[in-house]
């Protein structure tokens, strides 16, 4: 899996859990929280969906790795490929 594919997976999950957000213009290098209306409950759901849909575990101490699409890709791509 490429980093771009990984970003798309994260975006697809956000589209599912926050159907009322406009995701057409999400900047990969900006914190998701700063450009979308996401709170800690939403981030919990990103983690839960990663586990449910892709079997990927994100321990609580790593939640900050999901701050932006770029950091998601850095952190998650190796997990997808391992």
């Amino acid at each position: 899996m490429t980093k771009e594919e990984c970003k798309q997976i994260v975006l697809d999950i956000i589209a599912e859990i926050a159907a009322d957000e406009d995701l057409s213009n999400v900047k990969p290098d900006v914190r998701l929280r700063d450009q979308l209306d996401l709170d800690s409950m939403d981030f919990l759901d990103i983690v839960m969906e990663l586990r449910k849909q892709h079997g990927i575990e994100v321990p609580e101490e790593d939640y900050m790795q999901l701050a932006s699409l770029d950091s998601c890709a850095e952190y998650l791509t190796p997990k997808f490929n391992s």
């Binding site: 599912e16 859990i17 926050a18 009322d20 209306d37 709170d39 409950m41």
Partner: peptide, 18 residues
């Protein structure tokens, strides 16, 4: 509809209810 960051919007999201 469309007003975010409110209890109503949070619970609709969490329960995936339209």
């Amino acid at each position: 509809p469309g007003i975010k960051g409110t209890p109503l919007q949070k619970l609709l999201r969490q329960l995936r209810i339209n």
